[in-house]
Computed example of a mutant assay.
Amino acid sequence: MKKKVLLAGMSLLVMTMVCYGSFHKEKTESALLMENIEALAGGESHVPMHCVGFGTVDCPINHEKVKIVATGYSLEDLY
């Protein structure tokens, strides 16, 4: 009788751990997916950009040929 109760308890414990692990994993993947979608949807319109010199690279601001296109990061979207 004790073996049956112990076996039932262990089975219940294993099933609980498996269900909790699979539920927690899906929630994490979903959160990561949403962060990626938000990052892609945000665009790059607020990123500071500077075009320097004369060369063969197209400047996205005025479409002239420049040597360097320097971009930075903006913290404006975080607040």
Rank of each mutant, 00 (worst) to 15 (best):
42 G>H: 08
29 E>C: 12
71 T>H: 03
36 N>H: 10
35 E>W: 15
4 K>F: 07
33 L>S: 11
44 E>Q: 11
36 N>K: 13
7 L>K: 13
3 K>F: 06
62 N>P: 04
35 E>M: 14
73 Y>Q: 00
69 V>A: 02
7 L>Y: 12
71 T>V: 10
65 K>Y: 02
71 T>F: 03
7 L>I: 12
17 M>S: 09
28 T>D: 03
73 Y>F: 00
44 E>V: 13
73 Y>H: 00
68 I>G: 05
13 L>G: 15
26 E>Y: 00
64 E>N: 08
79 Y>N: 07
31 A>I: 09
48 P>K: 14
53 G>N: 07
13 L>T: 15
67 K>Q: 10
21 G>S: 11
15 M>L: 12
4 K>S: 05
61 I>L: 12
4 K>I: 00
68 I>S: 04
13 L>A: 15
69 V>N: 04
63 H>Q: 15
28 T>I: 11
47 V>E: 02
17 M>D: 06
76 E>A: 04
34 M>F: 09
58 D>E: 11
37 I>T: 06
24 H>L: 03
59 C>G: 01
74 S>P: 06
72 G>R: 07
51 C>W: 06
64 E>H: 03
63 H>K: 13
48 P>G: 11
44 E>C: 08
59 C>M: 04
42 G>W: 03
30 S>N: 13
35 E>F: 15
65 K>I: 01
76 E>T: 02
42 G>F: 05
70 A>E: 05
46 H>P: 01
9 G>W: 08
58 D>G: 11
55 G>R: 09
26 E>I: 06
17 M>V: 08
63 H>F: 12
45 S>N: 03
22 S>F: 02
79 Y>R: 12
11 S>T: 15
14 V>N: 05
53 G>T: 00
39 A>N: 12
3 K>L: 07
1 M>H: 09
6 L>T: 10
43 G>Q: 12
78 L>E: 07
22 S>L: 00
43 G>L: 14
51 C>I: 11
16 T>E: 07
63 H>L: 15
19 C>A: 10
31 A>F: 10
19 C>E: 04
69 V>R: 04
52 V>S: 02
74 S>M: 02
2 K>Q: 08
32 L>N: 07
49 M>P: 08
22 S>V: 02
77 D>G: 00
22 S>Q: 01
41 A>H: 14
67 K>Y: 12
75 L>R: 03
